[in-house]
Structure formats: C-alpha cells, structure tokens
C-alpha cells in the first residue's frame, strides 16, 4: 500500500550536511523502498532526492537549517521516522568530531 508522510527537523550537528552526514543519510534512506525527498526550508530550496549523494550535498544545510523530509511508498512512515531520528541525533557524531 502506498502512503506518503513528512516531518520537519533541525540540523543540530556543527558541520551541517557535509560529506559524512550526507553519506549516512543516503545509506539509511537507501534501505527503504519508498521515494525520499528532502527540502531545506531555511533556504527556500527545492525538493532534492534523499538517496542521492550529490543532491543532498546541494541541500546547502548548515547547523540550524530546518529540513522537511518526505517519503512516498509502502514504508514511508518508517523511513521518515528513521531519517528524522538520524538528523536529530546529529548523525551519530559527537560534537567536534
């Protein structure tokens, strides 16, 4: 069954969406079947592909940027929940790392 789901989160880690956070996001998003898009609300940006390493780098998301993560597909709710947790958690990276 297809469903869509979205939620807003804030980037908390100091480096923002740089190389490692981007790859963690891509790896996690790719585990879900649903289409994932991310939009940087702080920059009035467009919807970018959440499974694309290039697109996520184009988010231009720094610490404090607000993102809207959306998913569409069978596991949309689970995908949004897991990805939002990853961002809120600062991508599992301790500050200053």
């Amino acid at each position: 069954m297809n469903s869509s789901c979205s939620c807003e989160v804030e980037v908390v880690n100091a480096q923002g969406m740089h190389a490692r956070p981007v790859m963690k996001f891509v790896d996690l998003a790719s585990q879900f079947e649903s289409e994932v898009t991310v939009r940087n609300l702080s920059r009035r940006g467009e919807d970018l592909d959440g499974k694309s390493a290039m697109h996520l780098m184009l988010l231009d998301a720094a610490q404090g940027s607000r993102l809207r993560i959306s998913a569409r597909g069978a596991d949309a709710a689970a995908a949004v929940k897991a990805l939002a947790a990853l961002v809120r958690d600062g991508f599992g990276m301790s500050e200053g790392a």
């Binding site: 891509v26 499974k51 694309s52 390493a53 290039m54 780098m57």
Partner: peptide, 11 residues
Amino acid sequence: AWHIGVLKDAK
C-alpha cells in the same frame, strides 16, 4: 566516501 557515494548515485 562521498566520491564513491556520488559515483553510485542513481540520479
């Protein structure tokens, strides 16, 4: 790691 990620990027 990001270089590899970009090369694998389906988009």
